[in-house]
Design a protein around this nucleic acid. Sequence first.
RNA 1: GGGGAGGUUCCCGAGUGGUCAAAGGGGGCAGACUGUAAAUCUGUUGCUUCGGCUUCGAAGGUUCAAAUCCUUCUCUCCCCA
Length: 366
Amino acid sequence: MHIGHMVPLFAMHHLQNAGHRPIILVGGGTARIGDPSGKSDMRKMQTVEEIQDNAEKLKKQISRFISFDDGGAKLLDNAEWLAPLNYIEFLRDIGRHFSVNRMLTFEAYKKRMENGLSFIEFNYQLLQSYDFLELYRRENCILQIGGDDQWGNIVAGMELIRRVEAGDAMGLTFPLVTRSDGKKMGKTEKGAVFLDPSMTSVFDFFQYWRNVADADVEKFLLMYTFLPVDECKRLGALKDQEINKAKEILAYEQTKIIHGKEVADNVLAAAHAAFSSGGADDKSGMPSCDMSAADFSAGINILDLFAETELCSSKSEARRLVKQNGAAVNGDKITDPDAVIDSGFIKDGEIILKAGKKRFFRIIIK
RNA sequence: GGGGAGGUUCCCGAGUGGUCAAAGGGGGCAGACUGUAAAUCUGUUGCUUCGGCUUCGAAGGUUCAAAUCCUUCUCUCCCCA
C-alpha cells in the first residue's frame, strides 16, 4: 500500500460519511493471476499467509479513516468465492456472457496484444466481473470504484450483473493522480511512498508531502485531506514563501490521517527542529537509533557512522557524501573522511547527523 | 514440436577478445541558486581494510587475457505447426 492507492479509499471515506457502506475487496483469489492493466509483467504470486497478513495490515491502515465498527465497512477476500469455483460451471454460467470480440476492444488488452497476453491474464476481467456479481448477490453492492485502469473490468461486471440478475449496478473510476511534473503520485524514483512506517519512515512520509510542487498543493489538499473545500482553495492560492505554510498543513493533515494525530504532532515538531528553530522543538519524530556512550568514548569514524544509519547504504556512499560537502554533525559540515566522532560531539544526550539539506538522523545516547 | 531474436551495472540502452567497473540517456545523490518549491548549472553514481575485490541470465570450457569465443542449461519475445 502506498499513497498512490489512496484516492479510491478517500472516496470511500466520503461515501461512508454520506451513509453508504464500503466493502473493501482484497484479491486473495486473484493474487495468483496477472492483471492485464499492469504495465507488462504479471503480478507476482503470493502465498496464502502473505495475503492474509497483507489483508490484516491493510485493514489496520485504513481503519483510521474508514470505520469498520458495527454496521460499518467490510473487508472481504475474493478467495472466498473464487477458490471453490468449478471451471466447467464457471464457463457455463459466467463465461457465456462474455464476448471475446468485445473484450479485445478494451484498451487494456489492446496494448498487450503487441507483446503478448497470457490466457490467465485475459481471464482477469471475467474474475473481476464475477467478484462484482458475488458482491451484488451477497452484500447488495451496487457500486464499484477503482482507478481508471479498471474501467473495462468494472463495466464488464455491471453488464454481467444486468445479464445474470437483471440488476442495476454502477461504476466509478478515478484518473491516475499525477503531479505537475507528470510523474505518478507517490512514486519517488527510489520507490513508492508507503503507508507502512516500517517501509517509509513517518518523517520521510511527512517530508514527501511537505515538498510537493507549488502547483500541486491545492489539488492534493482537496484530494488527500478532509479540510473544507474553501480552505483548500485559500491555502492553494498562497504565493511564494507563504505557500510553504500550505504545504506544511498538507503534510500535517495527511500524516494525521494515515498515522494518527500524535505521530503527526511529533513529526511536525521534528521538522521544525530540523529546519528552523535551531533544535528547540521536540525531535522525537525524526528517524533515530540508540547507541551507547561507550561506543563513542573511543570515537567512531565519520564514514562508519553514516554507513550505520539509513542515511547512507555503504561506506563508499558515505565517503562520497563527505567529499561532496554534504555531511554534517550537529549542524557543522564535516569534509574530512578521516574525521572521528567521539563523546565530545554528544549534545543533550544526542547527536544529529545530516546528509544533504533534507535528510536527518538522530542518534540517542543511552 | 520447428525456426529466429534476445537476457549488460537502479531503468533504458551501447559494447562482439585486451585501452571495460563497462559509452550515452533517464533516474538517484551532492553542491550552487532558492522558499525544505520548480527550472537551471556543476559534480557524482558497484564494493573496499584504498592493496585490491566482485559484476554483464546460470554453470562449465578455450585463452597470457572474456561482457565479448565454445558447450550445456535456463528465461523472455517473435514466426511457423
